[in-house]
């Protein structure tokens, strides 16, 4: 808990200490991916259900947030609740279908991928609702007095204009981390972990595995949708590829697997690590070879494989083992 207060405080003060600009942008991206990762972690890390299509939740959240403003002029502060609750409902529906029919392991991964693809096609195919492939562009608010009301910080005065969305995603991340931390300490959390470890044994002990997984996928969807809300408010734009393409699904699973599955800190640790490495690689290798794209993702993929091979509990597990050794614990973690 003390560790988390330090992390929260450090992240809150970062824009003041680092000044705005590149480093804050880096942290903002790290936090955004950490939120996607936390969403994935609830279902994948704690529940053992590996989704390959979490973009479906990011995209649904983003589109609901964008379309309620775009089509009906609803305030972003109201639409965001619809975005989060609506996506949780979509998560429950997908979970209901998948888990009712007993899909586990690779089959669950495949069906989530298929749902993301189906939503991708739907978003492209009904321009009268979604504006199709062109995407939804929200109107820019230029009135500084309405910055807060429109949830747009571009003209809100220099500090807020530069750091408003950093604090938005920081708040979302801390909320998601706190929710996960709380979940670990409830009956629901204990039952979810039990289902991950051994579904048969869990059922024998009175756990309704179906309902527990349904709860987890809804929470996962809600957290991921919040990242979608942030994205839309920051960029005022969403289109089918960004919303439902595979890249968001992949980013969502990188961070927790590398950072440490089923730990509260894993997604943040993993996101920080890969983006740190990514930035370093772009600055060195990428620069040396003429700023070509792809370097960071080559490294991410390689790190993912190495972590899967050698660090099944991710960086958090490595850290715990090192800490135990340093403090003279028994060391066989």
């Amino acid at each position: 808990m003390a560790g988390w207060l330090i992390i929260a405080l450090a992240l809150a003060l970062a824009p003041l200490a680092l000044g705005s600009g590149r480093w804050v942008e880096f942290l903002e991206l790290t936090l955004f991916v950490a939120v996607l990762g936390q969403g994935w972690n609830v279902l994948g890390g704690y529940g053992g259900q590996y989704s390959f299509g979490n973009a479906v939740f990011f995209g649904t959240g983003a589109y609901v947030q964008a379309l309620l403003q775009y089509r009906f002029g609803i305030s972003p502060w109201i639409s965001l609740w619809f975005a989060i609750a609506g996506t949780a409902a979509v998560g429950a529906a997908i979970g209901w279908l998948s888990f009712r029919y007993g899909l586990r392991g690779s089959y669950f991964a495949l069906i989530t991928l298929a749902f993301a693809e189906a939503f991708h096609v739907l978003a492209r195919s009904f321009p009268s609702i979604t504006e199709g492939g062109r995407g939804v562009q929200l109107a820019l608010n230029q009135d500084p007095d309405r910055a807060l009301a429109t949830f747009q910080f571009n003209f809100a005065g220099s500090f807020l204009a530069e750091n408003g969305f950093y604090y938005t995603i920081l708040a979302v991340f801390l909320a998601s981390a706190f929710a996960t931390w709380r979940m670990e300490r409830t009956r629901f959390g204990a039952q979810l972990i039990a289902v991950r470890e051994n579904e048969d044994a869990a059922q024998a002990l009175g756990i309704d595995a179906f309902r527990v997984k349904l709860g987890a996928i809804s929470i996962s969807a809600a957290i991921t949708a919040a990242a979608g809300v942030y994205y839309v408010q920051k960029y005022l734009f969403i289109e089918p590829g960004i919303a439902f393409g595979t890249s968001k699904s992949v980013e969502a699973l990188f961070a927790p697997i590398i950072g440490g599955l089923g730990t509260v800190v894993g997604p943040l640790l993993g996101s920080f690590f890969i983006h740190g490495v990514g930035e370093a690689a772009k600055a060195t290798i990428g620069q040396a070879l003429g700023d070509r794209p792809g370097v960071d993702l080559i490294l991410f993929g390689t790190i993912l494989i190495l972590v899967l091979a050698f660090l099944p509990r991710g960086l958090a597990g490595l850290w715990a083992a090192l800490w135990r050794r340093l403090t003279g614990g028994d060391g066989n973690a």
Partner: peptide
């Protein structure tokens, strides 16, 4: 599944 996903990302971006 995750290892082959990692491989596909490496190959694609390579």
């Amino acid at each position: 599944l995750l290892v082959t996903l990692g491989l596909s990302i490496v190959i694609e971006n390579g």
